[in-house]
Amino acid sequence: MIKTTSVSFAYPGESPIHFPDILCEKNEHALILGPSGTGKTTLLHLLGGLLHPTAGEVLINQTAMHELRGHKLDTFRGKTIGIIFQKPHFIRSLTALDNLLLTQTLSGRQHDKSYALSLMDRLGIAGRSDKLTHTMSIGEQQRLAIARAIINKPALILADEPSSALDDQNCTSMITLLQQVATEEGANLIVVTHDSRIKNMIENKVYLT
């Protein structure tokens, strides 16, 4: 369950942005919509623990994330939150599989190669495990990014404009895949986008203005 209450954030020297409250019950997904410059990415980063809210509360499965700092926050983020970014970035020097294994290790878990491989299989990129990420197609990279976001069995999956670089067909399959994976993992999915193609795919919507 994700719950935010009167969250606001102010960049240094700027007036604070006030965000609408978000409530996501277990297994619910949400869509955060709004034109550019309305603080979509800021809200995503607040939800992901990459920024601290100036005021307000962010509860993730009963943990008050806005109160966590430093090492505790890093560990919590690693274990609880998976983030998919607009453009898939990976550690260039590592293979697809090693990128997943590193993500496991960094969150403080033992690495589990067979789980990582089964995840790649589930996402249709089996056989790509030994490839360097920049040699994979953009579609494969998107799938690997999803695999990375969910490999630590997070409670919350955040996706930042995941479909902006995709054509209609890939956009639909990407969002479908995300929803399906989130549901299978029992995680809340929150997608931030200005892409109107997604609007009808997720029920729960939050509009930023």
Binding site: G48, L50, D74, T75, R77, G78, K79, I81, I83, H89, F90, I91, R92, L102, T103, L106, S107, G108, R148, N152
Partner: peptide
């Protein structure tokens, strides 16, 4: 890359 590692819990 390093920011990504931070996101993953590093």
């Amino acid at each position: 890359e390093m920011a990504l590692m931070r996101v993953s819990g590093a």
